[in-house]
Simulated scan of single mutants.
Amino acid sequence: MDVTGLRVALFSGNYNYVRDGANQALNRIVGYLLRQGASVRVYSPTTDTPAFEPAGDLVSTPSVPVPGRGEYRIPYRMSGRVRRDLAKFAPNIVHVSSPDPLGHRALSWARRHDRPIVASVHTRFETYPRYYGLAFLEPVVEGILRRFYRRCDAIVAPSESMAQLLREQRMSYDVGIWTRGIDRNIFTPARRDPQWRRSLGIADDVPVIGFVGRLVMEKGLDVFSDAIDQLNLRQVRHRVLVVGDGPAREWFQSRLPDGVFAGFQQGPHLGRAVASMDMLFNPSVTETFGNVTLEAMACGLPTVAARATGSESLVTDGVTGRLVRPGAIGAFADALQAYCNDAQARADAGGASQAMVERFGWDQVNQALVDTYLRVIRQRERGARPHASPVP
């Protein structure tokens, strides 16, 4: 079989109703599959106000709003209508992208109908409880995730550091890489726009520390603002530029009263915003890859990031940026201060970053996942079945 014989049923908890790095990657793989002649059917919650048009055929699944985070929805079951549509589509592989109730039902359907299953890992769900005062639940969440992923034929992670973590957590014997690509027409130093910076009240010679992403606490907003407080106490000259929106925006603005909040940006406008920064500060530990880090590197920026999954696979400490122990406020401030005070250090790290991202083209990246689909199907045809990961 080649790619034209693929019939992929993709299950997602958020395919297009709120824009994020994970669902943009999913839409890109669907678009790539369709261009290569494969058949794809997507099953996900929908809303009347989607963030963007979906790639491929999207079937709406029953869902309810997430308590306290109503912009997100939980697909809580596989309805009879969805089951009939799935049976009619007759996939030869099932791809699940979220360990939610619909993902569990999709796994059960695939096992019952003897279809191979690939799961993609997009975020570190087990770390989320710590941001809501429930850190004691992390082992419980990790156990639920382990049960989910062990039922799959293979799982794919967006970075080698995340893949290694999944192996250490005993999630699966078969852990592959489906990394992320970059659009070099959008993310390039050529998008830097001094006039746009000036329109925001930022002088040409002031170093800009950037944050890019959805404004939610699990992105490390507390660590970011605490490190900026340190720079202010040290009287380090800088400005903060925040690109993104979300439910924690009001809190973040109160913590960064001198920050410039540019709101949600996309496409060329996002490229302009990122390229107009002087460094990216990404303190989050929840990402499995860190699309924003890759985008900043493509724009020629150094990155100061938490030493965590995702960032460790992208940032070379002391070369393309700095990696700092998660939560180490003083060390984050030291790294930011060094780049604020040394334009040549910023330029050197930015040049190294640009060179590093050359290998991240979307077609090459997505073909790796297609190869995984085909390999798993061949293994099933030879009689292979999912088996448990190593036990402690």
Score class of each variant (00 low, 15 high):
residue 146 R to W: 01
residue 141 V to D: 01
residue 164 Q to S: 07
residue 160 E to R: 12
residue 136 F to K: 13
residue 173 Y to N: 14
residue 194 P to K: 06
residue 134 L to Q: 15
residue 165 L to W: 13
residue 141 V to Y: 02
residue 189 P to W: 01
residue 151 R to Q: 15
residue 135 A to I: 04
residue 166 L to A: 14
residue 167 R to C: 06
residue 182 I to P: 03
residue 186 I to L: 09
residue 200 L to E: 11
residue 193 D to C: 06
residue 163 A to N: 01
residue 131 Y to C: 01
residue 175 V to G: 01
residue 143 G to T: 13
residue 151 R to N: 09
residue 183 D to Q: 02
residue 182 I to R: 06
residue 188 T to I: 03
residue 170 R to P: 09
residue 148 F to L: 07
residue 198 R to K: 12
residue 167 R to T: 10
residue 131 Y to N: 00
residue 176 G to H: 09
residue 185 N to T: 10
residue 151 R to W: 08
residue 159 S to N: 01
residue 134 L to D: 00
residue 189 P to A: 00
residue 137 L to F: 14
residue 149 Y to V: 08
residue 188 T to C: 02
residue 165 L to M: 08
residue 198 R to S: 15
residue 181 G to W: 08
residue 154 A to V: 06
residue 196 W to M: 08
residue 183 D to H: 04
residue 182 I to V: 15
residue 136 F to S: 12
residue 134 L to A: 14
residue 171 M to R: 11
residue 154 A to L: 06
residue 144 I to R: 13
residue 177 I to G: 00
residue 138 E to V: 09
residue 177 I to H: 02
residue 147 R to F: 09
residue 188 T to A: 01
residue 193 D to H: 05
residue 138 E to Q: 14
residue 160 E to S: 06
residue 168 E to W: 08
residue 197 R to C: 12
residue 154 A to F: 07
residue 133 G to M: 01
residue 179 T to Q: 03
residue 181 G to S: 04
residue 138 E to L: 03
residue 184 R to F: 13
residue 194 P to T: 02
residue 149 Y to I: 10
residue 130 R to L: 12
residue 198 R to I: 04
residue 173 Y to L: 14
residue 162 M to D: 07
residue 175 V to R: 08
residue 164 Q to L: 13
residue 191 R to Y: 04
residue 134 L to E: 13
residue 193 D to N: 15
residue 139 P to R: 01
residue 198 R to M: 11
residue 194 P to E: 02
residue 159 S to L: 05
residue 168 E to T: 13
residue 182 I to L: 13
residue 143 G to N: 13
residue 162 M to Q: 11
residue 144 I to N: 07
residue 187 F to I: 08
residue 168 E to K: 10
residue 135 A to C: 02
residue 150 R to Y: 05
residue 149 Y to S: 03
residue 140 V to D: 01
residue 161 S to I: 05
